[in-house]
Each structure stands twice: as C-alpha cells, then as structure tokens.
Simulated assay, not measured.
Amino acid sequence: MGHTVREKPKLLARVRRMKGQMEAVERALEAEAPCGDVLQLLASIRGALAGLTGEIVEGHLHEHVVHAENEAERQKAAEELAGVLKTYIR
C-alpha cells in the first residue's frame, strides 16, 4: 500500500482545509476586503500547500527512493521527484 493511500484521510483533510481557505479568498474578494486581508489569506494557503507538498515529497523519498524494491525503481522514483521539483521551483 502506498504512502498516499495509508495517509489518505489526513491528506484529504489538509486539502479540504485549503479548499476552505480558497473559498475564504473568494468571499473576501467578493466583499471587497482590504488587500492586506486577502494577502494574509493567500499566505496561509501557500504555507498549507508547502506543508502538504513537503509531506508527500518526504513520503515519496522514504517509500520509493530509500526503500525501493530495486535499483531501477529507485532511479525511476528519483527522476520523477527531480522532474516535479524542477516544475515546483520555477
């Protein structure tokens, strides 16, 4: 069983909280809230996304790189992660 499957309830709870945060941004914009308030909401979302991303990256590293079944799978998982990180860092 994969790490995202094992951690599914916890990960989905985090996604749902972020969804609620995005809805708060929408409500704030609709209500013409001050830009400082909107920026604070966006900063919270960015932090939540970074935390979720970090958790999934860590699980990927442990399960698919460190504890890979063989060298070919380890290489594939490392390349996958490298590709994602290149996109993420841009």
Rank of each mutant, 00 (worst) to 15 (best):
K8M: 13
K8C: 03
P9W: 04
P9M: 00
P9S: 09
P9H: 09
K10R: 09
K10M: 09
K10H: 15
L11M: 12
L11Q: 13
L12D: 14
A13L: 14
V15K: 07
V15C: 13
V15I: 13
R17A: 14
M18D: 15
M18H: 01
M18C: 07
K19Q: 10
Q21V: 00
Q21S: 02
M22K: 05
M22V: 03
M22T: 14
E23P: 00
E23F: 00
E23H: 01
A24N: 01
A24R: 03
V25R: 00
V25N: 00
E26M: 15
E26L: 12
R27H: 05
A28D: 07
L29T: 09
E30P: 08
E30H: 04
A31D: 12
E32A: 11
E32H: 04
A33C: 02
A33G: 06
A33F: 02
A33R: 07
P34W: 03
P34M: 10
P34Y: 05
C35K: 11
G36R: 06
G36V: 15
G36C: 11
D37C: 07
D37P: 02
D37Q: 07
D37M: 00
D37G: 06
D37S: 09
V38W: 05
L39D: 10
Q40R: 12
Q40K: 06
L42D: 14
A43V: 08
A43E: 10
S44F: 02
S44M: 15
I45V: 07
I45T: 00
R46C: 06
R46I: 03
R46W: 13
G47K: 13
G47V: 03
L52C: 02
L52R: 11
T53S: 05
G54K: 04
E55Q: 13
I56G: 02
I56E: 11
V57N: 00
V57E: 06
E58W: 06
E58C: 08
E58D: 12
H60F: 03
H60A: 00
H62M: 04
H62S: 14
H62T: 11
E63H: 11
E63R: 01
H64G: 15
H64I: 07
V65W: 03
V66E: 14
H67R: 10
A68M: 06
A68T: 05
A68E: 11
A68H: 05
A68L: 09
E69S: 08
E69D: 05
N70D: 12
N70W: 02
E71V: 01
A72N: 11
A72F: 10
A72P: 03
R74I: 09
R74H: 06
R74P: 02
R74W: 10
Q75F: 05
K76E: 12
K76Q: 10
